[in-house]
Amino acid sequence: MPNTQQLQDLTTQVRRDILRMVHKVNSGHPGGSLGCAEFFVSLYQDIMDRNDTFDMDGIGEDLFFLSNGHISPVYYSVLARSGYFPVDELNTFRLLNSRLQGHPTTHDGLPGVRIASGSLGQGFSVALGAAQSKKLNGDNHLVYSLHGDGELQEGQNWEGIMYAAGNKVDNIISTIDLNGQQIDGSTDVVLPMGNIRAKFEAFGWTVVDIENGNDITAVLEGMAKAKSLTGKGKPVCVLLKTIMGNGVDFMMHTHAWHGKAPNDEQLAEGLAQNAETLGDY
């Protein structure tokens, strides 16, 4: 298991990957990707029990589903750097004939991805289905999922959230990226969602807070706690507070970089704030 410094170094490298990927094609979603770098690195390098080789059914291993598919840059970078496909392939992000589509898909056979996502609000249902499948197969491994906070405005989420508690799907840990931002502005301005914690609790979920989702140690501790709460008859939700654009000062605390790529100068500035650690692709 990598130590905290190694995880930190990988996180920094992932940030560089994200910036370079979206810069190259002048498109993509850096803000949410940067904010979730610590979470993804922790999940893939420490928290999840993963098989060495990828197969769609994922029997005998933990599974992860990304519901807010637009943060594909962080997903792709961490998948590549966790050995699912060559790191060089990050060069093909959003290019014609690439397996690294703008939003993740199984269609082109990219190892590590088990469902297409991007049209929001579908990930809870899919992850819950996979969790039910694990139970039917007598597979004690867990299903993890990640969702945006703005994404919770989609009604299908609440169908899934209701189903999970009603059916005691207790082998799932669903994380909400609470960065408080969405395309048109802060979530409180676009559509105030009130107390998300209270909503999940009212729907019968066990809720774990991670107050600093951009601190590796806090993420590891929070997710370990979440894991300890599975198998007790209730689904588990992690409320992960992150800063959109984290690690690049001019991208932080704003929705402006939700779906915008940096120009040459901005890229240089962003990379300067995240010195190369493991080698660029």
Partner: peptide, 20 residues
């Protein structure tokens, strides 16, 4: 699944993962 067809389709998609 109750009166929640969108969730039903997503659940079904997820259940295929694992061979159902």
């Amino acid at each position: 699944v109750g009166i929640a067809e969108a969730n039903m389709i997503g659940l079904a998609a997820g259940m295929t993962i694992g061979g159902k």
